[in-house]
Every structure is written in C-alpha cells, then in structure tokens.
Write a protein that binds this DNA or RNA. Structure first.
Lengths: 182, 182
DNA sequence: CTTTACATGTAAAAAGTTACATGATTTT
DNA sequence: AAAATCATGTAACTTTTTACATGTAAAG
C-alpha cells in the first residue's frame, strides 16, 4: 500500500462507519490533528487510490440532500487496518520549532531567552486549553481508545505547561542572583 | 529566507563556531533529531543557498587533513538567527504513528490492543534509554539551553513511559474483571 | 439575499527521503 | 589489505502544503 500514512488515517476513520472525505477531514482536524494531520490535497486523491485498490467502497443510497460520497471499509480494507494496527512498529517524527529555538537560546540575551520560554509555555497552554474543550463523554462510549488518547494529550500538555513554569522560575531566580552578585 | 526549517537548524548549529555539513548532520542526529531532523539531501543544498544569501561563509585555513568545508555565520547570518529566535511563533507538527494506532485500537481485540500499548511503552522507553546515555555535563557548560532541552526530553519520556505503564495496568484490570463476570 | 457551512476536487510548488556516486583517510 | 569512518554531493522520488476552482444548501 502506497500513499504514506494518510491511507491509515482514512481506514481508521472508516472503522466506525461510512464517511465522506469532508467528514474525515473534520475528524482529523478535531481529533488526530495533534499527532497526525492530513489535508484535502491528501485525502481526496487517497480515497480514490484506496477505492481502486478495493480497500474502501462508495456507499450508495441515503447521502442526504447534498452531493456527497461516503465510503466504507471492504473486508480487505478492514483486514489492512487490523494488520497495520497489529504491526508493532511506527514512525515517530516531531517538528517542534519552539523546542528548536529553545535549544539554540544561548544565542539570545537572558531577557530574550526568558521571553522565549514564556512563549513556549503559552503554546503548550493553548494546546491544553483546546484539549480541555473537547467533550470526552461521547468518545468514551463509542470509541474508548480515542478517549484514552485524549487523556494522554491532557496529561502531556499539563506536564509540559508545568515544566515551562518551572523553567521560567529557575531563569528568573538566576537573573536575580546575577543582579545581586553583579 | 526560503528552504524551510533546515536553514535555522544550520544557522543555530553554527552559532557556537564553524562547522561542516557533515558535522552539522552529526549534531542533528545526536541532539535535535528528536524534535527536528535533517538529511544530507537537505543540508548540503541549503548550505549553498545560505552562502549565496550571504548568511554563512566558508572558513578558510585549517580544515585538517581531510577535504572539508567549514562554514561560519556572517553578521547577517547571526542577525537572521537572533531575529528568528525572537519571533514568538513556531510550527508544531507531530507524526506519532503509535499514538495514531492507539487512537484506532477499538478495531482490535483486547489482547491485541494490550500488545499495542506494550509496544507503545517500549518505544517511549527506548527513546528514554537513548536520552539517558547522553552526557549533559559538557553541554551544560558550553550551551546551557541544550542541556535544558535534554532535561525536557528526559522528563517527558519518563512521564510517557509511566503513562503507558498505568494504561497497561488499567487494561489488564479490566480484562480480569471481564473474566470474573463472563 | 447574503453569508456561512457543506462538499469535492486539482495543479503547482515546496519540502523531505532515499539511494546512489565518489573518493580520501584512518583504523584494524 | 580490508573495513570503517570521514566527507560531499546529486537525482529521482515521495510526500505534503497551498492556493485555487466550483458549486450547493442552510441559516440569518
């Protein structure tokens, strides 16, 4: 199966019932965006590829008043999904520009480095705020593991916000020490 | 400045003194790989682009016995680095295939889902092990913020390993409860 | 009737990976 | 003498983003 990871995002999204490209995009933006994003430019071509491969099939009938194509998993598609889920490997890529900046922050004067730490904290806090707005109750009933991943996110960004707080306090303390000495 | 984030990885790597493409790649693989990776296919063309833009310049003289080109920051390059560091924004992308699998794990039978959680834990643990092998002492002296980012990584992957342990325990408990009931 | 949300797609550009090519030097 | 490491680069390919094009239906 080609097409990178988008294929699995789609197969996974369809595990709970038929969805259109638009609905898959909504799910991605609401739920998986933080650890796996996908754009329309990936989703629609990939839907076609998966259909051509026989892993998904358009559902005909009730698609509502709007023009819309919903796809469902075929037997082959469900097998492909489960096979992938059972493979205990996985790529892991992180591109965290704020962490990269922090890594190089010796190039800044202390006041600017402190400002950077504050924006790092603000970023983690903003992610946390977004996650807190998600209602876990419906997820817990229909898809327990999506609620588990939400909990992971909540704990993670709570920790990260706290870490940034501690770093900020440490840097401020160092700054006042310097002030006393110098 | 074009060329995506690689440009800043290079400028940042050169903040502490001249380096060759090969040395930059080594630094990336040793230190920033976890939150920002870069391949030779990005580094060498980008070095040329940055040189053409006047942000870096080849250092002549002592390059050792081997053929090798080391670059250093120009004044413009140092300014570009500091300007970037002072910009309080930053892209943030995460592609965590194991987390994506966990999100869809309802599609698995409980035993397979448990196995997935275990491989998730094993991955976090392996990252933690790698981080623990890094000696923070030299970093702390020369580049305090790189030691700070290492501490971030250590705490983060300790937390994540622990989280996975707790989830594993919870799932096992649920499984035995089911066993008693059913 | 106008705006917002729904809905599907494409084309071009940018970014990134991978595999390959080449050769020097150092270590075993 | 062979193997490993140092060192620089390119070409082809894959992946991803971005911007655009197009139109329908619901809501205010």
């Amino acid at each position: 199966m080609t097409g990178g990871g988008v294929a699995y995002v789609i197969l996974g999204a369809l595990r709970a019932g038929p969805k259109s490209g638009y609905e898959i995009k909504q799910l991605v933006d609401k739920a998986t965006r933080l650890f796996w994003a996908a754009s329309y430019g990936q989703i629609y071509p990939e839907l076609r590829r998966l259909r051509d491969e026989g892993l998904i099939a358009p559902v005909d009938g009730e698609n509502g008043a709007r023009r819309r194509v919903r796809y469902e998993l075929t037997d082959g598609g469900r097998k492909a999904l489960v096979d992938w889920l059972k493979t205990p490997a996985g790529s892991y890529e992180l591109r965290d520009e704020l962490l990269l900046k922090l890594f190089f922050a010796d190039a800044l004067e202390p006041a600017d480095a402190l400002a950077l730490v504050r924006s790092f904290r603000a970023h983690r806090q903003s992610v946390l705020d977004r996650l807190r707005q998600i209602d876990a109750v419906p997820a817990r009933a229909q898809a327990p593991f999506s609620a588990i991943v939400l909990e992971y996110g909540l704990e993670l960004y709570e920790w990260a916000t706290d870490w940034a707080d501690r770093l900020e306090a440490r840097l401020q303390e160092e700054a006042t020490q310097e002030g006393v000495r110098g």
